[in-house]
Simulated scan of single mutants.
Amino acid sequence: MDGDEGFEEFYRSTRHRVVTVLYALGGDLSEAQDAAQEAYVRAWQRWSTISAYDDAEAWVRTVGHRLLINRWRKIRNGLSAYRRHGPDPATGPPSENTVALVTALRRLPAEQRQAIVLHHLADLSVADIAVQTGTPTGTVKARLARGRKTLATLLGTSFPEEVSHA
């Protein structure tokens, strides 16, 4: 089994068994699928070596099982820390203003919402947003302007003219 074709065939012919075994070991199908996926990624990265093993499927099962065990350990350690430190202090419900803002943000197109959040909540400059999103600065400025105008209408308020963060 050499090359990518060999791996693809190996994957197709073994994935169901591997997920089934990991599911039986862990009792959680989505965790089993995640662990199997990660194990297959690792196998693919080392395929030139693993393809020569007598039982490459056993290698994938073993790696998947170890991944499950590591996840259980993390959960167990998290529970231990929770028991030691107790629950986080109670936080109250969000304010009416917060609920109104989140509701209004959800109504914006995704690109405008992203620009508004990155600029006003993450305090990024227009240039930083342009770099992060791979968008021209003029487009970011337009999205901010349109987003602010729509938010003002949705919230029944007005925003002051843009304070430059360029």
Rank of each mutant, 00 (worst) to 15 (best):
E9G: 09
D4K: 08
A56R: 07
G78V: 03
V19E: 14
S48W: 01
L105C: 04
Y40Q: 10
R46Y: 02
E9D: 13
R46W: 04
A127E: 09
M1W: 06
S158M: 06
E162Q: 08
R143F: 06
E161D: 12
V18F: 04
H85D: 14
R71F: 09
A90R: 05
G26F: 01
A152G: 14
A100K: 11
A24E: 15
Y40C: 10
G147P: 01
E31T: 08
Y23E: 12
V163I: 14
L101S: 06
H65D: 02
S125L: 09
A100H: 05
K74D: 15
Q114E: 15
S95T: 15
L25P: 01
P87D: 11
A152N: 12
Q114L: 11
S158T: 15
H120Q: 10
Y23A: 12
S48A: 14
G3L: 06
T103G: 13
I69C: 09
P93A: 15
D123Y: 07
V41D: 09
D123K: 08
G86E: 07
T150K: 12
G27I: 08
R107I: 01
S164A: 12
V21E: 12
E111G: 00
A90H: 04
A56M: 08
V21R: 06
P87E: 15
P89D: 13
D128W: 01
G86H: 06
G27T: 10
L144S: 02
S95N: 03
R17F: 05
R42C: 04
Q33N: 06
L108Y: 03
Y53A: 14
